[in-house]
Simulated assay, not measured.
Amino acid sequence: MGTILPDSTEPPRVSMVMPVHNGARWLAEAIESVLVQDFLNFELILVDDASRDDSPRIMAEAAARDPRIRLVTLKDNVGLPAALNHGFAEARGSLHSWTSDDNLLRPAMLGRLVGALDAEPDADIVHADFTLIDEDGTELGRSRVGPIERLLHGNNVGACFLYRARVTEALGGYDTGLFGVEDYDFWLRAARSFRFVELHEDLYLYRKHGGSLTSQRAERIQALTAQIVERAMPDTLPARNRSEILLGLALKSHLRWRLDLVGRAFRADPVHVAARLPQIARWSLAVARNRFAA
């Protein structure tokens, strides 16, 4: 017996956007992971961001097979944030999510996320745990999402999420000038007005590989991260907390940005940084050793 699809004349509950730019290697598998969801009432909006590999053929064939797929083709390569905005401009669902052409949804993902929001009508965004995988799909370990109260310390929303369309509308989509941290910026802005719910279930597979956007743009991402976190800090945030957050960013940043972030932390709270000098010294020595060892 075949799968019974929802009535295509009615708007779907969920709009899932997948931006694609030369992502043929894992694209068919990524698309299939959406199509085999236990929850059926969704649309998959594939945004071809001017791909020059085999991606357009893969997307066209998938769209011909499944009426839940809609294809948006961009003539020029606009980058991930703008491609997401193009996709969500076509979205008909009251719930939004997006995924990448190299990542995979577990079959229960949409059903569990929709269920979580249905159970808490006053919540706006649900985010769930996920597993890291390598190029071959080997599982590397589970990543547990964290409380939104710690969002300034790092993007603990993660890669598996669902949010109401009103969040997209209120925030105006993703900032096209923040390619690489567009999602983190989106969550930082959302946290000012919307309620998040954590779901500690492993519902997604996030692929780590050298060709990923995160790997290719690592240094730029670190610089932008410091920029958006400082911008998101409320004026009422105590100086010690501001200093602690900046030091945390320094510990995770490329060498080029570390001293600058330590300096900003010192200007925020010199006493706090002075108390952490032994730790900073040990960290600096470890950085130097690793640098020369490489």
Results as ranks from 00 to 15, higher is better:
21 H>V: 01
21 H>A: 13
22 N>Y: 04
25 R>S: 08
26 W>H: 10
26 W>T: 06
27 L>P: 00
27 L>G: 00
28 A>F: 01
29 E>I: 00
29 E>F: 02
29 E>N: 08
29 E>A: 15
29 E>Y: 03
30 A>D: 01
30 A>R: 04
30 A>N: 05
30 A>H: 07
31 I>R: 06
32 E>L: 02
33 S>L: 06
33 S>E: 02
34 V>A: 15
35 L>Q: 10
36 V>C: 12
36 V>S: 05
37 Q>A: 15
38 D>W: 05
39 F>Q: 02
39 F>W: 11
40 L>V: 03
40 L>R: 14
42 F>L: 10
42 F>A: 12
44 L>D: 02
44 L>H: 06
45 I>A: 05
48 D>W: 07
48 D>G: 06
49 D>A: 07
49 D>P: 09
50 A>N: 07
50 A>T: 02
51 S>V: 03
52 R>Q: 12
52 R>A: 14
54 D>R: 12
55 S>M: 12
57 R>Q: 11
57 R>W: 05
58 I>D: 10
59 M>I: 01
60 A>K: 13
60 A>D: 11
60 A>P: 00
61 E>W: 01
62 A>T: 01
63 A>N: 00
65 R>S: 14
65 R>L: 15
66 D>M: 08
67 P>D: 10
67 P>E: 12
68 R>A: 07
68 R>Q: 11
69 I>L: 14
69 I>N: 04
70 R>A: 13
70 R>S: 13
71 L>W: 09
71 L>T: 06
71 L>Q: 03
72 V>E: 10
72 V>L: 13
72 V>P: 00
72 V>C: 13
73 T>W: 06
74 L>P: 08
75 K>N: 09
75 K>E: 14
75 K>R: 15
75 K>P: 09
76 D>W: 01
77 N>W: 12
78 V>I: 15
79 G>R: 05
80 L>M: 13
80 L>Y: 08
81 P>R: 03
81 P>Y: 05
82 A>N: 03
82 A>S: 03
83 A>Y: 08
83 A>P: 09
84 L>M: 13
86 H>K: 13
86 H>I: 01
87 G>P: 02
87 G>W: 09
89 A>R: 11
89 A>S: 15
90 E>L: 06
91 A>T: 02
91 A>C: 09
94 S>H: 03
94 S>W: 08
95 L>F: 10
95 L>P: 01
100 S>V: 02
100 S>L: 11
100 S>K: 10
100 S>D: 15
101 D>H: 13
104 L>H: 06
104 L>A: 02
104 L>R: 15
105 L>A: 14
106 R>H: 12
107 P>G: 03
109 M>V: 12
112 R>G: 07
113 L>S: 03
113 L>V: 08
115 G>Q: 01
115 G>M: 09
115 G>L: 09
115 G>N: 10
116 A>N: 08
117 L>Y: 04
119 A>E: 12
120 E>A: 15
120 E>C: 11
122 D>Y: 02
123 A>K: 12
123 A>T: 11
124 D>G: 03
125 I>P: 01
125 I>H: 09
125 I>L: 14
126 V>G: 04
126 V>H: 07
128 A>M: 07
